[in-house]
Write a protein that binds this DNA or RNA. Structure first.
Lengths: 330, 330
DNA sequence: TGCAAAGATACAAACGTTTGCACAAATCGC
DNA sequence: GCGATTTGTGCAAACGTTTGTATCTTTGCA
């Protein structure tokens, strides 16, 4: 592989000038710059970023740490972040934690070892707090998105969880459902705490009672959603707001098993507009969290060195599963 | 940050010994090794992999280049590869091409610049051939999966495309459908060529005519699947084998629009067992390509330096969309 | 006891860049 | 035309590892 030394030798100048020429330093004559660029092209020069990173003490890599890559929500976040970061010359190193705090710690250590320029993090659901993050990352810029530790410093990109849950619940009320339970997530995560708050607020604003017994905690996957769905049916619910998408799917499994018609006899609204929600029968009303935009916002926050918290709105998508009077068209 | 020099100084030895001790070189006394490990821990030492990579001329990073991360097929491949590679101490750098050859070239260059230890590639659909890959990558180990250039050297992990398409088509024939078209993909990709061949073989083995007019090329997304679906209906087809999953979805859109019942009057089998295929109505019969296993196989091929081609079997999952007599249970 | 072999560590040169400082040449103001 | 500033390059020291070779010490064996 050709190095800047080779180019320097070929032109009878020093490597430093070549380096400066290639990195666009203004202290180099336009003429030399062109000559350098020309021979660099001719000799097939490719910059060794590893060496450059070592010298500079930081790399042009941004680490992204997420629970699972094959959740559409997260893969869209990645897509959004990657598009912005690539344009700015960064590459992304992606680590899955599979919801394990140990894997998260390992991933952060790896990223630190690679001296990444920054880390975009959505933490594992059962992480008790952000202490491990702070300890490992030190002063590496940290941008949290979706699942954030509020006490950790740095930029945060969050969904309008409370508002979204409020909209979803109010929608169920307006559709005519009356005993509305909720598939709540893990209270270790701020996002789910807020969704629960929004759900509660909507009930109370409508003069409906908030019943702690109708809150089914720790349900974010299909299986637990199914089990909670059975319990909700037994408890006499006629609707559920689900803080997740897959748990809502599980609840619909439960309805089908019990022969309960949705939306006529039971309404459901989920969160996270995963692709399947539009395709299943009944199609699932959900909250669109705009994951691509969240990823973009996280990338921008990193690039601009922002430290504030941005809230991405959530939008209700009304589909069949919450349409009590069954007037669904198309 | 503490370096091996600091540790060396603290112990009155040289950095080289510290390096050897930490990397498990047998030429260092057990006693020294323990001392080094102890002080390393005490001083909070974190190995600078960037420096190590520079010296060694290669990194412990494996690049993965794929068309789109949010296709379940690819995100599962990544998941499979990542799990194996992480265990072996590698990290993965992921690049999306969004089916653009230019982006693919850029991604490969970036990976080369990072001196990655190897590249796992599934090429953009409209890449004419693998010349750009060979030119950029040079002697960096290349493992191709799913979408491969047969003429490029190195390991390849492919699905049993021909066999899978054969199974799918034969299944439609056995179910009682008679005029079976196909939503073929792009003939620039070996995988789709083979699927078309399997489809044709199944027809001919059953004594049914192969009709070039019923082959709808370049359909792999929902929109083109929909359009091809309309054409197939007009042409009098009563079934389709789709070489993709999203195109099959589009074809079902077309059927619904025309009021044609599936599976009673029209059968469909797709490829790529995306999550939605099991959830939609009618649920879509598909071929499971075992993407997670493909990713694992690619990672193993890299780690073991294999150069051969492995074929991952495809398994037919019979669901509603191909069940002509509508005897679907559960 | 002596000598060879093996065992453990030190030395120093890389790896390919970047960058502060020095220095020469060119430009400028007066 | 002279000192002061600007402009363009060169020099050399990093950045933190790894590793081939050399050196020193210990061990084993006759």
């Amino acid at each position: 592989m050709t190095t800047i030394r080779d180019i320097a030798r070929a032109l009878g100048i020093t490597p430093s000038t070549v380096s400066r020429a290639l990195s666009g330093n203004p202290r180099v004559k336009e003429e030399t710059r062109r000559a350098v660029e020309k021979t660099a092209r001719e000799m097939g020069y490719e910059r060794n970023v590893v060496a450059a990173n070592l010298r500079k003490g930081r790399s042009m890599i941004v680490g992204i740490v997420i629970p699972r890559i094959h959740r559409e929500f997260f893969s869209n976040c990645i897509g959004g972040a990657e598009s912005i970061l690539n344009q700015a010359g960064y590459s992304v190193l992606i680590c899955q934690t599979l919801e394990s705090v140990e894997a998260e710690i390992q991933a952060l250590k790896t990223l630190k070892n690679y001296r990444v320029a920054g880390v975009l993090l959505s933490h594992a659901i059962n992480a008790p707090n952000g202490d491990h993050v702070k300890e490992i990352l030190g002063n590496t810029p940290l941008i949290q998105f979706d699942r954030v530790f509020p006490d950790l410093p740095g930029a945060k990109i969050v969904g309008a969880n409370c508002d979204g849950a409020y909209k979803a619940t109010r929608h169920l009320i307006e559709a005519g459902y009356r005993k509305i339970g909720t598939l709540a997530g893990y209270m270790t995560s701020q996002a789910y705490v807020e969704r629960l708050a929004g759900y509660r607020m909507a009930l109370e604003d409508a003069g409906l009672p908030f019943d702690e017994k109708l809150v089914y905690y720790n349900t974010i996957v299909r299986e637990t959603g199914y089990e909670a769905g059975l319990k909700a049916i037994k408890a006499g619910c006629d609707a559920l707001y689900s803080a997740g998408a897959f748990s809502a799917l599980g609840a619909i499994d439960a309805l089908k098993e019990k022969g309960i018609r949705a939306p006529e006899d039971f309404g459901i609204v989920g969160t996270a507009n995963e692709g399947f929600t539009a395709l299943m029968t009944p199609s699932l009303s959900t909250l669109n969290q705009h994951p691509f935009e969240m990823g973009e916002a996280a990338a921008h926050a990193f690039l601009e060195g922002r430290l504030d918290t941005q809230v991405i709105p959530m939008e209700l998508i009304e589909r069949q599963s919450s349409n009590k009077n069954n007037t669904w068209q198309k």
